[in-house]
Design a protein around this nucleic acid. Structure first.
Lengths: 237, 237
DNA sequence: TAGATTGTTAATCGATTAACAATC
DNA sequence: TAGATTGTTAATCGATTAACAATC
């Protein structure tokens, strides 16, 4: 019986490390494009915008892919990280909700080049049905279960009003999807084992507002200016 | 001389707490709309999707706004959090880059209802100049400095290709902007005192891919399927 | 007063960083 | 061999959680 302190399963990679692997991948791609074949942890750390000690620590969770005194082979490390993330196989994505944001996502070229295929678009508004966005026809949300099964969808992207998000998430989960990217400004509850990432645009602006406030001149001069309508309701559309 | 352990200035609120304040604000708005006038930390925590101990700890950084044995007054707490974040005053936002994502952001209703006014849109493509998106006319990026000064812009949103992001960020900073929301998939370097938040769509999908991979059947069966073109270059457009 | 719930303390946990022995 | 740089250990730091005294 070995005591295991960390939340590390056999293949346990800390969550914070996982979140940085894509940054390293991008930095390596950049270096590769520049024709760099070898790089030190220091150089890669700068390119990724992190501390080199952290980078080495992160990479140590994947294995020993560097050479002491030399550094890392750019192509090799890039492949190893891509494999670790699971990008050596393409993944199929369904986007639900084709308002402004959903359309932008459906058109986003960055997904394709990274191994994500938007294979289906769903929207509740029947006026959109049949229209083509980014080369894919919009279908009724009613088709969700069929689409997930037939097109082998691995990831669901929710770009719809907060009021509809939970129901669609439930259906995605029931259909077997275990990864959801949620742009709707609402808390989703999903069963254990389903991974949800949240992108919340107003939250980001609010965090910026907080910091911005702390350095504007008027902040020092106290003041609790009155205002209402703050924190209003919202949709992602 | 008092030793100060935490990275807490007089008004020091931990970064993790700041990032959750917008969630609490939203949850309170929801409760308020339902007609709830008082709530416990437990109820609010559930609505915000966090642990109630963490919620109370977070709120304790702002002050003592609850009543033991009773809970929190929804409206009062909502106001206090809004004030803390700095939402009692509207903030002006410029969006740079009006590709699909930029247009979606310019149209995003959630900003308005939260005290953010998109007052200017800039794009390098002159075919877009003069077109109106979300009620605001697109202007040349050349106007950046004038726009920031004349329209009192507090926050810059970058929705442009990675290759252009650093240059525009530099100009925003030089013009006095201290808060940037960056959708371009690149590391921005900015001087001390400037706050950058990053939203990276492919990174989010990659993190999901990692987790999704760990529970798909084929993962157990080893396998290092070969593939290339992974981690490619990208634009936000 | 008895029950409820906050605000805070202390314990735990995880993530970051510095430092350095291992080794190319 | 001397210089460079990794991978790892140990120290630090910050964030989360449990527990409970304070108090409505």
């Amino acid at each position: 019986m070995t005591a295991r302190t960390q939340a590390e399963s056999p293949r346990g990679i800390p969550e914070a490390t996982v979140a940085r692997l894509p940054l390293y991948l991008r930095a390596l791609t950049l270096l590769s494009d520049e024709g760099t074949s070898t790089c030190s942890s220091e150089a890669l750390a700068v390119a990724a915008g992190v501390n080199s000690a952290m980078l080495r620590k992160d990479l140590s969770h994947l294995g020993s892919y560097g050479t002491r005194g030399v550094g890392y082979d750019v192509e090799h490390l890039r492949y190893q990280i891509a494999r670790e993330i699971g990008l050596t196989t393409d993944r199929n994505v369904v986007v639900v909700g084709l308002g402004n944001l959903g359309q932008a996502l459906a058109n986003y070229a960055g997904f394709r080049t990274r191994g994500f295929r938007v294979v289906a678009l769903l929207d509740a508004d029947e006026r959109l049905h049949g229209t083509v966005v980014g080369g894919v026809a919009v279908r009724p949300v009613h088709d969700l279960e069929r689409v997930v099964a037939d097109l082998d969808v691995a990831i669901g992207v929710l770009a719809l009003p907060a009021s509809a998000a939970q129901e669609v998430a439930d259906r995605l989960v029931a259909a077997g999807v275990t990864a959801i990217l949620n742009f709707a400004p609402t808390v989703l509850s999903v069963p254990e084992g389903v991974e949800v990432r949240k992108v919340d645009l107003s939250t980001e602006l609010q965090i910026l507002a907080f910091h911005e406030q702390r350095r504007s001149p008027s902040y020092l001069a106290d003041g609790e200016p009155v205002a209402t309508g703050v924190g209003g309701r919202e949709e992602v559309r």
